[in-house]
């Protein structure tokens, strides 16, 4: 560190007596929290072994997380079939990369094709059937389920959200009223209640004999709520777009659907992408609520693992591990959202 840098740090932290006192007070507070935490998590932690008895160091027992790692990731998915989950993940990532790096003129077609093919492929790979061994959704769990629910709920939420955002801007009073009612209703009720509602009412309103899978009910319920929030995010983009864009399109002779599809939506969605990403983050965080209908996502598996009699007292380890994963996912997404917001502002 150069002398001037040291100098500037000194003025920054100890410039005036008041600043110095504040620095010392906060510094002590941070040390008071950080030192025991680091000792527990790293220095005094036990890393290797097979059972609870191997945790003798007094700190965190990461042996527990290692022993349970498969469950935290895949739930009770049969170990021999877990390659299918990995394969589905790899295909989704590769397809996403292919769409991003494809030449602009192919991108839309590729994207639409992926939107039709990938969800079905994912369900087939995870659920089985057609020469793959069937795996019931009861056995799904862990991080895989968190990702699954987030993606499939947004497959419902994004198209519905766009439709209702357009409906809210419509000149036709009935369509506007229906959209406003839909959006405000789902935004006004707690998500936990919606998950209960979906799991109780969906089987009731279907014709007798048609059962809906437990997981599918939760995905549909979440999808509807997030759709209302997505609609508000898209509305922000629609309102930010100058009215001249639609007027110019109409003047060129484009009808409502063409003007919307080719002129308004592409620009509006680009503006609302950060807001939509924030809603997606909220969705990832809210997938944890499926716990109340005993579907075990990452947090649910962590919670359920506390009941294991051979690993009593692992609360902190389970929470630290699952919390870190949630934090990493949401933090990365929020950074990405901020990045696209900044880069679109610069243009």
């Amino acid at each position: 560190m150069s002398a001037t840098a040291a100098q500037s740090w000194r003025t920054r932290l100890f410039g005036t007596p008041a600043t110095g006192v504040l620095t010392l007070a906060i510094g002590l507070f941070v040390l008071w929290i950080a030192v025991p935490l680091i000792r527990w998590a790293l220095i005094d932690a036990s890393w290797s072994g097979t059972s609870r008895n191997d945790c003798t160091a007094g700190g965190a027992c990461w042996v527990f997380v290692r022993a349970r790692f498969g469950q935290f990731m895949y739930g009770f998915y049969p170990p021999d079939e877990r390659w299918r989950v990995n394969l589905a993940g790899i295909i989704f990532v590769l397809a996403g990369a292919a769409i991003v790096f494809a030449p602009a003129r192919l991108r839309l077609k590729l994207g639409l094709a992926a939107l039709v093919v990938l969800p079905l492929l994912g369900i087939w790979l995870l659920g089985g059937g057609l020469s793959l061994r069937p795996v019931e959704t009861r056995e799904w769990g862990g991080l895989m389920l968190t990702v699954f629910i987030s993606i499939y709920s947004s497959l419902i939420a994004i198209p519905l959200g766009i439709a209702f955002a357009l409906g809210r801007q419509s000149e036709l009073p009935v369509i506007r009223l229906v959209s406003v009612l839909f959006i405000e209703f789902w935004r006004g009720v707690p998500i936990i209640a919606v998950i209960f509602l979906a799991s109780l009412l969906l089987p009731l309103i279907m014709p007798g004999g048609i059962g809906i899978d437990r997981l599918a009910r939760a995905v549909i319920g979440l999808g509807f709520v997030i759709a209302a929030y997505m609609a508000e995010a898209v509305r922000g983009g629609l309102q930010a777009l100058p009215a001249g864009q639609r007027e110019a399109a109409t003047a060129l002779g484009l009808g409502y659907w063409k003007a919307t599809g080719f002129i308004v939506l592409p620009q509006a969605l680009r503006i609302s992408l950060p807001a939509m990403t924030n809603e997606f983050i909220a969705l990832v965080k809210n997938t944890t609520l499926v716990l109340v209908v005993s579907i075990l996502d990452l947090l649910g598996i962590a919670q359920a693992s506390l009941a294991d009699p051979s690993w009593v007292g692992m609360n902190m380890e389970a929470y630290a591990f699952s919390g870190t994963i949630y934090w990493l996912i949401c933090f990365a997404l929020s950074r990405w959202s901020r990045h696209i917001e900044m880069s679109s502002r610069r243009r």
Binding site: T288, Y319, Y326, C330, S334
Partner: peptide
């Protein structure tokens, strides 16, 4: 820290942790 972690995590953490 708090904005990027699910609320349910905090509820369970405060209660069971």
């Amino acid at each position: 820290f708090v904005r990027n972690i699910p609320l349910l995590f905090f509820v369970l953490f405060w209660y069971f942790g």
